[in-house]
Amino acid sequence: MSLAHRQRRKRPELNLVPLIDVLVMLIFFAFVTMQFKSASTLNITLPKVETAGKNEFRGNVTIAIAKDGALSFNGKDVTDAQLIEALKAVKNIDKDTPVLIRMDEKGTLDRLTFVWDACRKVGLTKHSLQSR
């Protein structure tokens, strides 16, 4: 090969601009289609606790108490009797399952004590109250 022939040969290039454009569109699409779980299922405003640490709940049982006293078990509305039956079923699977209780800051203490008492009656003793 001659010297002139070597100089005409171009190095292959990878055009990164279209790849970056596609990546940005994929990230944008992921954020638009992502569903966020929040306390808005029962329109609950969690009470603020100054001394609370981070809420690092790792269990799979969540009981929500709305300001009007309505209960929800893992996102599904339940009655008092249905809650007790659901807690019994959880205890039969694993008695060490932690229970997270989320109560609206305007909720009544009697509903909270009912949920705590229901957990203890069926044998679930690892329960915590979520705050913000």
Rank of each mutant, 00 (worst) to 15 (best):
V24C: 03
V24Y: 00
V24S: 04
M25E: 14
M25Y: 04
M25D: 13
M25Q: 11
M25T: 08
L26D: 05
L26S: 03
I27N: 00
F29N: 04
F29R: 03
F29C: 07
A30L: 11
A30K: 05
A30I: 06
A30G: 07
A30Q: 09
F31E: 05
F31W: 02
V32E: 04
V32S: 04
V32F: 03
V32M: 08
V32L: 12
V32H: 00
V32P: 00
V32K: 04
T33L: 08
T33I: 06
T33E: 07
T33N: 05
T33C: 01
M34S: 09
M34R: 09
M34D: 07
M34C: 05
M34A: 12
Q35N: 13
F36H: 11
F36P: 03
F36S: 10
K37G: 13
K37C: 10
K37I: 15
S38R: 08
S38T: 15
S38V: 07
S38Y: 07
S38H: 09
S38D: 15
A39K: 05
A39F: 06
A39H: 11
A39G: 14
S40Y: 11
S40M: 12
T41W: 08
T41E: 14
L42V: 00
L42T: 00
L42C: 01
N43Q: 11
I44C: 03
I44G: 02
I44Y: 00
T45Y: 01
T45F: 02
T45L: 07
L46S: 12
L46Q: 12
L46A: 12
L46P: 10
L46H: 12
L46T: 09
L46W: 07
L46I: 05
P47M: 07
P47N: 08
P47Y: 06
P47D: 10
P47V: 02
K48D: 10
K48T: 03
K48Y: 10
K48W: 04
K48E: 10
V49L: 14
V49T: 08
V49R: 15
E50A: 13
E50Q: 11
E50W: 01
T51K: 14
T51Q: 12
A52K: 15
A52M: 12
A52D: 13
A52F: 11
G53P: 06
G53H: 08
K54N: 13
K54D: 11
K54E: 13
K54A: 14
N55Y: 11
N55F: 12
E56C: 14
E56P: 05
F57V: 05
R58E: 15
R58P: 05
G59K: 02
G59L: 06
G59I: 04
G59C: 04
N60V: 02
N60C: 02
N60Q: 05
N60W: 01
V61E: 08
T62A: 13
T62G: 05
T62C: 11
I63H: 00
I63Q: 01
A64N: 15
A64S: 15
A64I: 08
I65S: 04
I65H: 02
I65R: 02
I65P: 02
I65W: 02
A66D: 06
A66N: 03
A66I: 02
A66Q: 03
A66M: 03
A66G: 13
K67P: 01
